[in-house]
Amino acid sequence: MGKLQGRAFIFKDNVDTDQIYPGRYLELTDPKAIAAHAMEGADPAFPEKVRPGDIIVAGKNFGCGSSREHAVIALKEAGVGAVLALSFGRIFYRNAINLGLPAIRLAEAPKAAEGDLLTIDLEEGTIALPDGGILSFAPFPPEIRKIIQGGGIIPLVKSEQLG
C-alpha cells in the first residue's frame, strides 16, 4: 500500500449516489459499461476527462443516498485512485473499502484546485499539496488496510474459500 498520485477533481457537499451513478443505468452489470457513466449526474464530462489515478476531492457526506455499489464500481473502473471527503455516506464508504477503492475521511478540506496534482501516502496518512503543504489523515486501521492491500474483499474471501 504505497503512494497514489493524481489530479484533483473537486466536488461539493452531499454528492449523492444518484449523481455519482444515475438510476437509469442500474440494470448494467458490466463494469466497463458502468464506468462510462461515472459522476454523470454531477459532471457529464467526467468519464471523458478522468485519467487513471485521478482523485476525487469532495465536501461533506459524499456518496449519501442509495446503496448502489455501481457508484463505486463506476469510479474504480473509470480509473479513480482515491476519494477524499470530509465525510461519507456510510454504505458508499463500506462499498469503497470492499472494492479496494481508498475512501479517506479528512478533518479539513485540502487547499487544492481542480486539476492540481496530489500525492497520497496511505501508510503515513499524508497528502502532499501543490503549495508544498502536507495534510494529515488517520491511516486505515489494520482490518481495512488488509482489504485495500488485497485489492478488495473479493480476493480475500476467495482465498478463504479455497483454503
Partner: peptide, 22 residues
C-alpha cells in the same frame, strides 16, 4: 441491499443497508 433498510427499526430490529459485495 437498500439504503431504506432503516425502516425496520420500527419493528425493534437492528437493520441496515449494505452494498452488493457486503
Amino acid at each position: 441491499t437498500d439504503s431504506h433498510t432503516t425502516t425496520h427499526g420500527a419493528f425493534g430490529a437492528f437493520a441496515t443497508g449494505v452494498g452488493a459485495t457486503d
